[in-house]
Design a binder for these strands. Sequence first.
DNA 1: ATATTGCTTAACAGAACGTTAACGACCCAC
DNA 2: GTGGGTCGTTAACGTTCTGTTAAGCAATAT
Lengths: 223, 223
Amino acid sequence: MKVLVVDDETTILETVETKLRKEGFSVFTAESAEDGMRIYKQAKPDLLILDVMLPNRSGMDLCRAIRRDSKVPIIFLTAKASEQDRIQGFEMGADDYVVKPFNLSELAARVKAVLRRSTGDPSKDLIESGNLRIDPKTHDATLEGKTLSLSPKEFALLYFLGRNSGQVFSRDTLLDRVWGPESYVSARTVDVHIRWLRERIEIDPSHPVRLVTVRGVGYKFVS
Amino acid sequence: MKVLVVDDETTILETVETKLRKEGFSVFTAESAEDGMRIYKQAKPDLLILDVMLPNRSGMDLCRAIRRDSKVPIIFLTAKASEQDRIQGFEMGADDYVVKPFNLSELAARVKAVLRRSTGDPSKDLIESGNLRIDPKTHDATLEGKTLSLSPKEFALLYFLGRNSGQVFSRDTLLDRVWGPESYVSARTVDVHIRWLRERIEIDPSHPVRLVTVRGVGYKFVS
DNA sequence: ATATTGCTTAACAGAACGTTAACGACCCAC
DNA sequence: GTGGGTCGTTAACGTTCTGTTAAGCAATAT
């Protein structure tokens, strides 16, 4: 999930950025409304955090401009939170308010809450391939109706490969995308998880037809 | 369709009124519970939007008074809304909740949703799954007809999970949605409440089939 | 043939979860 | 007030499960 933070105070920008990165977001920053608009157009973030008070054009103006062609969730940062400001913010389509000075964890929590509300979790789609179903909402994977009890990693790996069906991924890429960019584990680990998955979803694990090895490259999921 | 909005903050009243007019509703407004009651009797609106906190008589009182002789749909506006507040509202006959600060489009969407629902089947708040019934209106949960005496938190948690049956929720999400967005309690607290619930609704609490653990993710309710 | 790449297994360490008990806050009856 | 009870939270400990690694074996390409 991409978040764009716009604030003219560098220190705030940095602390917020650090916190949100820790929480797993891709963070973009801008120190002015103009930069904010430009980066917004390029990065297409899933959520904006805007300071209300910005030089030249205020955050409110930026909000208005963005609202003209998008429903992206917006959280306002504001020093004073008089009721008047709040109303003005909602009129323009803000989804939440955080008052400075704010608690970093609270901000992170609100970001998540807003994203949850606004997306309604539509990003988590059901995957179906033949008699195999992978449902991230219920965290269930079923084969011919029978539930496969997968471990968290197994599920994550299968879901990722299923979502990008047909495409080959190297072990390193899989580690990056499934395990996460910060994980330092051996590439062999992927082999083991693939093995376990095959045991569950392949008719004959030693002759896989779904989780296929591409020698010298990696693995892919075929329908 | 006629809508009556009761709130003591003029700015909110105005923005909501503008938005709903744009959406094609006839809007009436009142700034106090007394005015609200009077206008309600005159205008006979098809839906009410009530602020929970009003001077003198609270919105809740007004709701109760109106419910005595009418089944008109009511949406509450509230500053903070945990699942407990929500249930309290349902007990008094509220049809939906909108949390301040709210997004105007969201409010409009809910107004339409409630109206759509109210013209159709009425009691959709009740949850039934097998021999388990959960009724927020009476705050009763029964298993095979026998009443389980659940504590408020237990009930709120069970009701939330039951309402979103099948879907997995992380402990953090549960804290946010059931405990409320402002609560800062340890995630393990959820475990304990789940444990207590299992003791009541599971045949064998150590092998749960209704309140299921999804390792690495959280919990879900299965029918 | 031999080097490279992938497969398989088992063992270990640590994380996640379950469970219990204790504590304090709160409410209600007296 | 005062005492008893309930409820929610936390901490601590035990248990189960999962992820990772290593090491040897099998398969494949050059």
